[in-house]
């Protein structure tokens, strides 16, 4: 599903990612981990197209996204959900409206939106909360709304950047259980986190970065793709 070959990402003189090669299979759930500044978030930004690699090749679902121009990004992102530590919700809009944004963007018909939004809120445990304003929800509930918005289009890949970073222990576990359930439905899930306790409790393959280098979990391809 995700193939990276010798990816380098530099900001001026500083290399945020250095010669990273990795494979993530379809339906896999993996962690991108490492200390602060190791390159976890940069890795995710490359995957959802917010940044372009300085060099190397990056294939997602068979498409070469390393050379994708801005006009092609919407089609990449429509097949990919993204969840952030700070939720990125519109607080003055309702839960239903926040989730529906992802469907409106692709021009989904109104009756389909009316059907899909409650169904996906049911998956994240927020059934019946469509009319609540997003701004009044707890942190855990906000993250569940963000996850609902990320998966409402049935994306092939779900990227989560420190999804439990702003949550206490019990809520973090709830969110991880939801991500696990989504993965069991066939979605490839990539989680950037440095929470070792959570990774031990939900054990999946770990890609460990240190100073921009992938030190655990990568591949060593014989030649550049």
């Amino acid at each position: 599903m995700i193939r990276l070959y010798h990816i380098v990402k530099s900001y001026g003189d500083r290399d945020a990612l250095r010669d990273v090669s990795l494979h993530v299979e379809k339906g896999e759930m993996i962690y991108v981990t490492g200390p602060s500044g190791a390159g976890k978030s940069t890795m995710l930004k490359l995957l959802y197209g917010a940044e372009r690699p300085t060099s190397g090749k990056m294939l997602i679902g068979g498409a070469d996204v390393s050379k994708m121009d801005n006009r092609q990004l919407p089609s990449l992102r429509r097949n990919m959900g993204v969840v952030f530590q700070d939720f990125k919700l519109l607080p003055h809009r309702t839960v239903g409206e926040n989730v529906a944004m992802a469907l409106e963007v692709i021009g989904a018909p109104t009756d389909s939106i009316r059907r899909r939004v409650p169904a996906v809120l049911n998956i994240v445990g927020l059934r019946g909360r469509e009319e609540d304003k997003a701004g009044v929800l707890s942190g855990g509930e906000k993250q569940r709304v963000a996850i609902a918005r990320a998966i409402v289009n049935d994306p092939a890949i779900l990227l989560a950047d420190e999804p439990t970073g702003n949550l206490d222990g019990a809520m973090a576990v709830e969110v991880m259980e939801i991500l696990q359930a989504i993965n069991l439905r066939g979605t490839t899930v990539v989680i950037a986190t440095h929470d070792v306790g959570l990774m031990d409790r939900f054990p999946y393959r770990r890609l460990r970065f240190v100073d921009g280098k992938l030190v655990v979990g990568g591949i060593q391809p014989r030649s550049k793709a």
Binding site: Y48, L90, A102
Partner: peptide, 16 residues
């Protein structure tokens, strides 16, 4: 800006 950022993330085109 939050609204624009979210729209971009969920795959909205510039025209949309």
């Amino acid at each position: 800006r939050d609204e624009l950022e979210i729209l971009r993330l969920v795959g909205a085109t510039d025209g949309y």
